[in-house]
Simulated assay, not measured.
Amino acid sequence: MIDRLQAQMQAMQMLMKMQDVTANNLANINTPGFKGSNTFQNMVQKRIDGKMVTQAVPQQQVDMQQGVLEPTGNPLDFGIKGKGFFVVENGEGAHLSRDGRMHFNSNGFLVDENGSRVMGDSGPIYMPEYLKATGRDGDEATLDVADDGTIRLDGEVFDRLRIVQVEDTSKLERRGNNYLSAPEEAMADDSSSKVMQGYYESSNVDPLTEMVDMMKTTKMFESQQRAMTTTDQMMGRATQQLGKF
């Protein structure tokens, strides 16, 4: 019966993890570029009391399903069609992002909504010329970004947005501010994804699916609670009977 209690406890821990992931997905329905997570069980072997025991450990993986590309008309909004990521850098190092809402800061660096510098082929994208907002004929400067990320200012090539892909999405780890990270060896330059200027990608979370999953998980958790209570009662009765001898 101890083994039964342990199995029920592990099941409840798995269900709690699933509920936490679902709640986080729902909380980010309106977060641009957010990628939801899926949960699954990973079977691992552990040594307990001198013997090897196989246990189910809850894991989560980033869902790379494409979110809807919303048009904005803003030349500094960028959406990625494909599985690539923008690379941004701040004081905590390099991060991966799908949130393409960008702007130039007062120093002429292209930054995202969190102020992190957006990386190009040769480092942070630096274009103080854009701040002057004038073209060669005195008109407003024209910034064009091709679908391969090439940035042109009044027709002149300045840089190219660095887009990378992580083939093994199990290597992705969540960070703060809707960032992800992955080991350098897991990242590769991505030429298959397309950059869409004047768009941003919405969250790929389906609220209806998440609500259904939440209700299912709640029912399964309650079922495990009842099963654990029954097992506990059976152990109590068994202990009472044994005490009579």
Rank of each mutant, 00 (worst) to 15 (best):
11 A>C: 07
11 A>N: 08
15 L>E: 12
15 L>K: 09
16 M>K: 14
17 K>M: 08
20 D>T: 11
20 D>F: 06
25 N>E: 09
32 P>Q: 01
34 F>T: 00
34 F>L: 00
37 S>N: 11
41 Q>Y: 10
52 M>V: 04
57 V>W: 07
65 Q>H: 11
66 Q>H: 05
66 Q>L: 04
72 T>C: 10
74 N>V: 13
74 N>K: 10
75 P>Y: 02
90 N>G: 14
95 H>L: 07
98 R>H: 04
103 H>K: 10
104 F>S: 02
107 N>D: 13
108 G>T: 03
110 L>G: 12
111 V>Q: 06
113 E>Q: 14
113 E>V: 15
117 R>H: 14
118 V>D: 03
128 P>N: 11
129 E>F: 04
130 Y>D: 00
138 G>R: 02
139 D>P: 00
144 D>L: 12
148 D>V: 07
152 R>S: 13
157 V>C: 04
163 I>R: 05
165 Q>F: 09
165 Q>Y: 11
166 V>S: 04
167 E>S: 08
170 S>N: 11
175 R>I: 08
180 L>C: 00
182 A>S: 07
190 D>A: 08
192 S>H: 14
192 S>F: 15
192 S>K: 15
194 K>Q: 15
195 V>G: 07
201 E>N: 05
208 L>G: 13
210 E>D: 09
210 E>V: 06
213 D>L: 10
219 K>F: 08
220 M>A: 11
222 E>P: 02
231 T>A: 14
239 T>E: 01
240 Q>S: 01
